[in-house]
Design a protein around this nucleic acid. Structure first.
Lengths: 357, 357
DNA sequence: CTGAAAGCGCTTACAG
DNA sequence: CTGAAAGCGCTTACAG
């Protein structure tokens, strides 16, 4: 900007104050040390005299120096980028997760790169590998159902890419897992309906490729068993975690003469679909039919009646996953961190009621 | 890993076949040319003999070479990253936009980095500037309302960062705009309600900081004027593009004795809120009240009755913005591309009906 | 049409 | 505790 010094060539001779970002050489020159020592400060190396360190940090602050992540990355053979790998069809899930990851990455120097994928594609694994290798990602956060694919971790290990998996149950080392405990959530939904007096409880699953769907069902079954009940096949329907599949399953379960008095849907989108199916059949909710969803995404409070559902703290999970990913791993096996987990909770709203006799 | 060749030093002497990514030097050596010529092929420089080019490309393909974006970026003083800058509170908007950007970036070599922001924050501009400068982003896509902030473009220009703005109306050079034409959408909503016989039509706005809210209102007013009608202040309410603000505005407009027979809400979230407010007041939709939303996001088809709304193709807009951003700008002013735009269309569903007498 | 040299802004051995 | 040299994988002048 206010550069009146003559312009010369060479790394230490460049005119200071010119309209360009300060580099490690500027810091070194102004602090009267070598760039290697500046590098030590940047990387928090222990062996720097504290006076030297402070002087260097003062210079950095004065000239507004920030290390170039690209140059550091080239030297370190990795990028300061974290990837979000997802194949979940629910936009609300993706946004919440992403927001949580950004929370966890804030101020860390890592940026978030988003990467949707399709497990069913024949190029799923090669695409993922190419993405990770080409960008030299520091690490990735895997969300369901991609996180449940056992072909993925070896590929990431091979590429030297860290990862954290988010799943209903533990599938990996504790240091690489965030557990959402969907079975607990499913049991909470089941117990709620049973406490209201329901005995004929239906279940609408998600796609079988999602572990969460099985876990939520298993939770319901646990609650039923506790009460001496069971989940007969005639009261179940395979959905796809979509609104449309909720409508279809709702119509299928509710048009029978021996229809359930309550339905637990494995997510809110399908619960909203069941609600519309009930309306089309003139079945009043919750007077004649109770419905429980799962997720507590926005749709749960948009429909009428507002859905009783199970809240899983997606954004918190994202934050935890990001923090875990970028936290340096302890070297000693004994010092290994526990797997982190969250506990889903039931949110009572207006779509469930005491069984009418 | 399985490297049994003797390890030597120097760039051309490294053991081929070792478990590492091929570099430009490997290609050069195998193709018997200098790395500079390989670089020319990578960058599509015209002055390469076509035989040489083909030979080099064959080698690249054989050894699975892909240039390292980080190293290219360091040399070129920019990153192969594109940022999405957003402050829209609607997750569906964000996901749709993001998906569109990924569509437009697919295969380009650019990755998408997401960056939420808050225009009201005192550090909004400095945060944005720091983000762009530090990461040396190639460019950013600005979405409303951040795209409407005239303080932003100079900062990006200063940083040498390309940008494309998405907005209701043209705010910049045609080469930097994607226009969503919200006024046309608002007029479509208004004409639809007028055609159904409505005369007392209410309007629930978004936050005044969003240009789209004003444009949608202006469209409604245009339609009203065409029919010799107007929008009185008593039939308007300022919302915030949120479901809750829709409930509040709905309650406010509908609890008056001279309530409107129809309401146009500036987005679907608020329209869903108005629907709930109407239900609480025992006002039947569409028999006693018609409601039109805007966006045609998923919520529009989840509520009951399903919302008549105006569809703006968010994902398409995203794709167009990404393509525009990474397409090299024509040098000649005369060859400048037109501003791209989309035209919103009315989607008729079940929340609107002929005015009952 | 093609190449040798220097450089982008950092870090890793290797010395001292 | 600190530094000079070489290197990460590319590209930009500059030559020829």
């Amino acid at each position: 900007m206010n550069d009146s010094a003559p312009r010369r060539r060479g790394e230490t001779a460049r005119a200071p104050g010119a309209n360009r970002r300060p580099t490690i050489n500027d810091v070194a020159r102004l602090a009267n040390v070598s760039k290697k020592t500046v590098s030590r400060v940047i990387n928090n190396a222990p062996s720097v005299k504290s006076e030297t360190r402070e002087a260097i940090m003062r210079v950095m602050h004065e000239i507004g120096y920030a290390p170039d992540p690209q140059a550091r990355g080239l030297a370190l053979r990795r990028a300061f980028l974290v990837g979000l790998i997802y194949d979940n069809p629910n936009p609300q899930y993706v946004v919440n997760m992403q927001q949580g990851l950004l929370d966890g990455l804030a101020g860390s120097g890592y940026e978030l790169v988003v990467h949707p994928c399709n497990r069913a594609s024949p190029t799923f694994l090669s695409d993922l590998s190419a993405f990770v290798v080409r960008q030299k990602l520091y690490g990735v956060v895997l969300t369901p159902s991609a996180s449940e694919d056992e072909r993925v971790p070896p590929i990431l290990d091979e590429a030297g890419c860290e990862y954290v998996r988010i799943a209903s149950v533990s599938l990996d080392d504790a240091s690489r897992m965030i557990i959402s405990n969907d079975q607990i959530g499913g049991a909470a939904a089941g117990r709620h309906l049973i406490a209201l007096g329901h005995r004929e409880i239906g279940f609408v699953s998600g796609p079988p490729s999602f572990r969460s769907s099985h876990e939520r069902r298993r939770g319901l079954e646990t609650a039923l068993e506790e009460a001496g009940l069971s989940l007969p096949a005639r009261l179940t329907c395979e959905g796809a975690y979509t609104f449309e599949s909720g409508i279809e399953c709702g119509a299928a379960l509710l048009s029978k003469p021996d229809r359930p008095s309550a339905i637990f849907a494995a997510n809110d989108e399908m619960a909203a679909g069941i609600l519309q199916a009930a309306r089309a059949l003139d079945i009043r909710v919750p007077d004649e039919l109770s419905i429980v969803g799962y997720d507590d995404f926005e749709v749960a409070a948009r429909v009428w009646p507002r859905l009783t559902t199970v809240r899983s703290p997606t954004r918190d999970i994202g934050r935890m996953a990001a923090e875990k990913l970028i936290t340096p791993k302890p070297v000693a096996k004994s010092a290994e961190a526990d797997a982190e987990e969250v506990v889903p909770v039931l949110i009572e709203r207006a779509s469930t009621a005491v069984l009418a006799h």
